[in-house]
Design a binder for these strands. Sequence first.
DNA 1: GTCTATAATACGATAGAC
DNA 2: GTCTATCGTATTATAGAC
Lengths: 219, 219
Amino acid sequence: MGRSTQSKSSSNKPRQVRDAEATKAQILDAATEEFAKHGLSGARTEAIASGSGVTKAMIYYYFESKEKLYQAVLHRLDFPINDMIRETNLDNLPPEEALKEVIQAAIAYRVQHPHLGMILFQEANQNQGKFYKQTNWQEGFEQVINILERGMAEGCFRSVDPFLTAIHIAAVCTFYFDAYENLKYAKPDLDLRSPEMIEQYTQQAINLILAGVRFNTQQ
Amino acid sequence: MGRSTQSKSSSNKPRQVRDAEATKAQILDAATEEFAKHGLSGARTEAIASGSGVTKAMIYYYFESKEKLYQAVLHRLDFPINDMIRETNLDNLPPEEALKEVIQAAIAYRVQHPHLGMILFQEANQNQGKFYKQTNWQEGFEQVINILERGMAEGCFRSVDPFLTAIHIAAVCTFYFDAYENLKYAKPDLDLRSPEMIEQYTQQAINLILAGVRFNTQQ
DNA sequence: GTCTATAATACGATAGAC
DNA sequence: GTCTATCGTATTATAGAC
């Protein structure tokens, strides 16, 4: 039957205000959420329109087509995290510290961009990463691999496969958010998105990964 | 424009063979793949029909509606892994061994059911776990938590939050498969689905998790 | 049990007024 | 820059022949 469009607390702001950048941003926000939920093919332009408080026609006015809008969403999510990671100047930190920083940054970014993970999964499974290729997500990945290799060379990390271990680290940083709606049923009394839980989750992730890669002779 | 239906190597078997169970199974197989890619709302009944080599009408004949078919798919994926885990009789194994067995079983199950992860993610994000609640996935989760608690009590695991650590273990066991289509671009020369890579991935996962939770005084 | 044909609606995209 | 109205097609679901 198709899902009920119409929904969402369609922002009842008086539109007709002619602010191009604001409108574009509203569309992108709503589109990000819609594409995360349903992927490129499953997303409904009407849902994006009502979610952003504008009409469908605006989407085509600014973005030409659903596919172009999708690419714009991907592109907007692309760079900030790499910048974040670059800023902390990881090469100057000892490998353990660098790894901790990356994990913290990745999780913090995920808190700010809750839809990122599902967008990437939709992209992988629906479009076989066709659009993903055009993005720069690889970069963050390479960073982690570098840290792992440096840690092994310096003797503070045990011998691991850096590529597979980087995948595992990415897994730990993203799964919590992507599976949230299912996980919440396991502990109905807990608010998994509260700052306290996120903080605990971050700590547990760091502890697990660092203990997992550390070369343990002493202690 | 919608995506191009029509596709898929529509099994050119001569139909009209009247084998109810076989037809149902074919529909469920194709539906599993389609729902994994597009979720409940995004899935196209025509794609499921052509993917299973029958007509749309058959889907409604056997499953009444798209939503009922979706629930049937979820239900079919539900039990086997819990059985698998139960069979190995984890309570009789030392915690480290038990954890290793669970990780191996989970990954092996994922190899056999490549669409499981995305189905669960779609379910979480598209339907807020509405249908997930009716399944028994919690059970496997509890098993891992039990092992972790037992390991801590016996002093072979360090002090971890068992719930969050179980989430991290689940993450490591599923992310590799769910992100496959994106990950493959990072190492184009590698076949991430080859038995050798899966074996390496499994070993790395076990090593990382065990090292991550082990209480390390010696060695 | 399986198919073809079709009804009813949903959806992507555009035209044209303001 | 924004809206309403609408076109053409895609899609769910059903009716009815075989």
